[in-house]
Design a protein around this nucleic acid. Structure first.
Ligand code: ZN
Ligand code: ZN
Ligand code: ZN
Ligand code: ZN
Lengths: 149, 149
DNA sequence: TTAATAAATTAAAATGATTGTTATTTAAAA
DNA sequence: TTTTAAATAACAATCATTTTAATTTATTAA
């Protein structure tokens, strides 16, 4: 945890940004909820528990900055809000998501899976891929079990 | 064109909805701009040219209805607006997108490409896939040519 | 055909997420 | 220490989308 914060601090410094207390509090919340897919409001409420003086706009600005630096990925599952996902350290690509249309759960796929597809796209469409977003909508294993009862 | 409208009309009827003049005007705009990825506002302005009395809320409701019936797909490229894409008739899956981070162009990939990946996901994650969203972000062929100059 | 009912629409207001503004604070540089 | 720049809080403003209430249109029943 602390070492990851240290690395993020260096990452900010190398782009001449500072890890202010507000930014650190925000990053800590993201680290403590790595499994989740928090909205800006979610992050704000969690940060507020420990640092009640922080403003929502600051959370937004911090998340924007972290997105710019590719420390987090911004993603949208079709409900009206953007969600923020810490990028795995050293991960070449953004991970994929499984969104259950019954219970709303969002599970993650860390494996790449797209290598072959991306090779085809780069060749056939002459498109230089920098990033991707892949989300599957369907029924999660939990809801399949429920349905069988 | 007319036959596609007819089929959409039947599709609505089979779910006991009517193809009102406002809905027809909206569908026509979508058909006339199949290549594009129009926002609700975009659709509204285009519909207004021929049917100035239509309201923005009606366009939103119509697009919502068409999305429910899977006549269009709602998609989000990360700017703050939802965009609406006519589904290819008979297409099993939603097509993929190439978003250029330099010029903003959005190109389409109609080929499936994901068959193998989806088989793996269904098996390994025990997830019943109903739909997907796949978007690549990168440099389009046009901008690559520009960069070489 | 006419009265009653339901569906769809308009226009306006409300909502909710996000962004911009301004004064203030904090940290770095001179 | 004084000066300057960066960051923040509090609030206002904006933008996309949804809701509401009144009206219109189409459908059904008498
Ligand atoms: Zn589920
Ligand atoms: Zn995730
Ligand atoms: Zn381009
Ligand atoms: Zn498309």
């Amino acid at each position: 945890m602390e070492t990851r914060i240290e690395r993020i601090k260096k990452h900010l410094h190398s782009s001449s940004y500072k890890l202010t207390p507000q930014r650190e509090a925000t990053v800590r919340v993201l680290l403590e909820h790595e499994e989740d897919h928090l909205s800006a409001e979610d992050v704000y409420l969690l940060v507020k528990e420990k640092s009640p003086e922080i403003g929502l706009a600051t959370v937004y600005r911090t998340l924007e900055l972290l997105t710019e630096l590719k420390i987090v990925d911004k993603i949208n599952f079709g409900d009206g809000v953007s969600r923020y996902d810490l990028r795995q350290e050293g991960a070449a690509h953004f991970h994929h998501h499984l969104v259950c249309i019954e219970c709303g759960a969002v599970d993650e796929i860390q494996e790449d899976l797209l290598e072959d597809v991306e090779a085809v796209v780069e060749q056939r469409w002459n498109f230089k891929i920098k990033d991707h977003r892949l989300t599957f909508h369907g029924i999660c294993y939990r809801c399949q079990d429920k349905d069988e009862e």
